[in-house]
Design a protein around this nucleic acid. Structure first.
Lengths: 337, 337
DNA sequence: CTGAAAGCGCTAACAG
DNA sequence: CTGTTAGCGCTTTCAG
């Protein structure tokens, strides 16, 4: 049988409670005792039993990551997960993943979820991160949570990056190449990403003194298919754009597909930019100019902050992480054709 | 405070033990009693406390998914995860993810891992699924595990699909289009996927009466870059192939990139096929002809089998799931150029 | 700064 | 088929 806390206590010649104090990082233990206990722990190869800790301490050591089902298959969430796991690695916490259909009323189901899994903390990505009723209910239940890229002010812990500025940068890049007619495929309603990226697009045009043309902005929903459809609309215009900025990489791929179908060469006949920096942006040919979103870093930071908030419930934390513009082969100066 | 098992027992007028029996699915409870207890559970909104169950029952209700770090960012594992979560959904089990560097000697670290997390069962994907020492140690520790696509016979529960046949199918497809010189970029050593897919390639050639030419087979390691490098070698041959079958989609993208750099048009000048059916295969233009690997289904089946094995340790289960050939725009009859 | 003892909520012998 | 009772291994009052 594995060593238990009382074995450690006996070995170190102290009480069980003192060992527990060391285990939980309390500071009121004499250095000498602490060292003796730590040695016993090593000697006996002692590992605390998580179930017993949970039961006695009324905490699960679980951080739940809530995301929605369409997101489930995107590399965005995969990257966030990598960051979340990384952050948990050096803590006693485990991450558990919970995809929820965005269509479901999560605010109504959250009570049952919490009753079942009893997570100590939650990390929410859009669109759940934008569900005001959900956040309110979590506050009522007194459960700590961190949001990623939430557009709500209600979230006292939110991690993101300057999406508006990133979008502005990428459109400014197109403008600097000489493009004047730049199309934009928007993201899905309800996501902050939609508004921020569109605003960045408009800001870049304004700063360059290029008039905004509403016919160049087409609705998308973050899917490849919507990018394809939007490109059809844009390329069918009497005066089509020479460049298209899609609000994410999948839609940019849709745009590239439509260009391909029409025999248009990217970037000679049409420049295309995406957003997110998903794997496909590197794999596709030509490489897709995009913004690398710091997903991994955001997942990591979200967990770190929310674990801190468990100790200090008053914690308020807004963090904006750096992003990277990735200039690749899909953008170039407009052709003469 | 939430209802506890004794509240349910009191409400139903039975002993705690009987409630426990119902909770754990024992059959030796009279139907009438069972129904009464189930009603009380509903009425009181009772949810068992997982920590207490774990502690008393000496099980964690955790299924750990072990994968390696390069795999971590691939959509392969993302899909497996989706399946694993799906399978856990309707059970009291939670999935926990654990990326391990493939370079690490997992067999040596598994004891510590098990001591810490005490998973009731494990699911292993390649390359860990092929680590004989690891599996042996798990057997010694008496921990149930399921492998996915393991090439070892030692694994008593393994889920996969007929990779050799799938590769044969895809090469047969190229042959049927009229290709005679078909290049192959292999997978990474140590993965069954490498050997199976290469064997399928050779089998297809043999059945079609096409001589095997070793110069058409180039080493790859499943990365985009290795596909790029392999394509360089193949396209530099005096008598280059008219089609290339890469052992996964990322490498196929590398091949397409090299073709793009050389001004070769896919599929007119070169047909390209991948393997896996990752998202990029649909997003890229032209669409990539590939085999959709049933990742989600494998993850799901692996969990189901391994949970069954907890109840019946003698369970022996080998399952081969159906795959799908996806013919897309990247493959066509060889051009006349 | 340290210790003794009382549970956390459930499962599992064991007895009926 | 059902109930009684003793823990599972840890945290945490409450004293000292």
């Amino acid at each position: 049988m594995a060593a238990r806390i009382e074995d450690v206590a006996a070995d170190a010649g102290v009480s069980v409670k003192t060992v527990s104090r060391v285990l939980n990082g309390y500071t009121n233990v004499r250095v000498k005792l602490r060292e003796r206990i730590e040695k016993s722990i090593r000697d006996l190869n002692y590992v605390p039993n998580a179930s017993a800790r949970s039961l006695a301490g009324r905490r699960s050591f679980l951080v739940a990551l809530l995301y929605d089902n369409p997101t489930a298959v995107s590399s965005y969430i995969m990257d966030v997960i990598v960051g979340v796991l990384e952050a948990c690695k050096e803590t006693p916490y485990n991450a558990v993943l919970h995809p929820f259909d965005a269509a479901d009323d999560l605010a109504a189901r959250i009570d049952g979820f919490v009753a079942h899994h009893r997570p100590d903390a939650l990390v929410l990505v859009p669109p759940h991160a934008n569900n005001a009723k959900l956040l309110q209910r979590l506050d009522e239940l007194d459960i700590r949570y961190a949001t990623i890229s939430s557009r709500l002010r209600e979230s006292s812990i939110d991690i993101g990056f300057d999406e508006r500025k990133a979008a502005e940068d990428i459109v400014a890049h197109l403008l600097s190449l000489g493009h004047q007619r730049i199309g934009h495929v928007t993201g899905l309603k309800g996501h902050g990403a939609r508004a921020w990226r569109r605003t960045g697009y408009r800001d870049a045009l304004r700063k360059a003194g290029v008039a905004y043309d509403a016919s160049l902005v087409v609705e998308g929903d973050f899917t490849f298919e919507s990018g394809l459809a939007a490109a059809r609309v844009l390329l069918d215009l009497d005066h089509p754009p020479t460049a298209i900025f899609a609000a994410n990489d999948d839609m940019a791929c849709g745009v590239m597909r439509e260009a391909y179908e029409r025999g248009l060469v990217v970037p000679d006949d049409l420049s295309v930019c995406g957003f997110d920096g998903t794997p496909v942006s590197q794999l596709i040919s030509p490489g897709l100019t995009t913004v690398r979103q710091p997903c991994r870093e955001m997942g990591c930071a979200a967990v770190q902050s929310v674990l801190q908030a468990i100790r200090d419930p008053s914690l308020h934390h807004q963090e904006r992480l750096p992003y990277q513009l990735k200039i690749r082969g899909s953008s170039a100066a407009p052709g003469t054709s």
